Simulated scan of single mutants.
Amino acid sequence: MQIYLAAPFFSDEQVDRVARIEAALEANPTVTDFYSPRHHQKTDNPEYTPAWAAEVFRRDVTQVLDADALVVVADFRDDDADSGTAFEAGMAWALKKPIIMVEETDYKTNLMLTESLTAFVNKAEDLATYDFKNYPESKFEGQLF
């Protein structure tokens, strides 16, 4: 089972959350492998150049296409989701891939994200026992906008 981890990793809090999710996925016996974009930002091109951006974009899109499911972190900053994460979640939904959303904060969450998910968990550590073979469904619990 190949999982794509769609998550922002721009602050210490976000990096900590992603690291805890990565540890949970590593511990999960129903996960064969996972791809976390934060570990795949290097290219032969200088960071933040058009060539670097094109390579990272192609790599991440290919990984979304190849994934069996996505774990999406609905981490909000200034009442808005990370645009890259939202893009990846939209791709997954259009491709009919299961989406497991993690939301540990109490921010209001956009209904486009909450209505696209297969399952919702509110603690990163819960992903260590989630059944990625059968994808049990659960609804979002929180405030919507």
Rank of each mutant, 00 (worst) to 15 (best):
M1Q: 08
I3P: 11
L5V: 10
A6S: 14
A6G: 06
A7R: 08
A7L: 03
P8M: 06
Q14F: 00
V15L: 11
V15P: 01
D16R: 14
A19M: 08
N28W: 02
N28D: 08
Y35V: 00
P37H: 11
R38H: 14
Q41S: 09
N45K: 13
N45P: 02
E47I: 01
E47R: 13
T49R: 04
P50M: 04
A51I: 00
A51V: 00
A54F: 00
V56Q: 05
R58Q: 14
R59G: 05
V64R: 07
L65V: 04
D66L: 15
A67F: 02
V71M: 11
V73H: 09
D78V: 01
D78M: 10
A81V: 03
S83V: 12
S83Q: 11
S83C: 11
G84W: 12
G84S: 06
A86M: 10
A86W: 09
F87W: 10
F87T: 07
E88H: 03
M91T: 02
A92H: 03
I99A: 07
I100D: 03
M101E: 03
M101L: 10
E104F: 00
E104V: 00
E104M: 04
T109Y: 02
L111S: 13
L113F: 10
T118G: 10
T118K: 09
A119P: 04
K123G: 00
E125S: 08
E125T: 02
A128I: 02
E141D: 13
G142D: 07
G142P: 10
Q143K: 14
L144A: 11
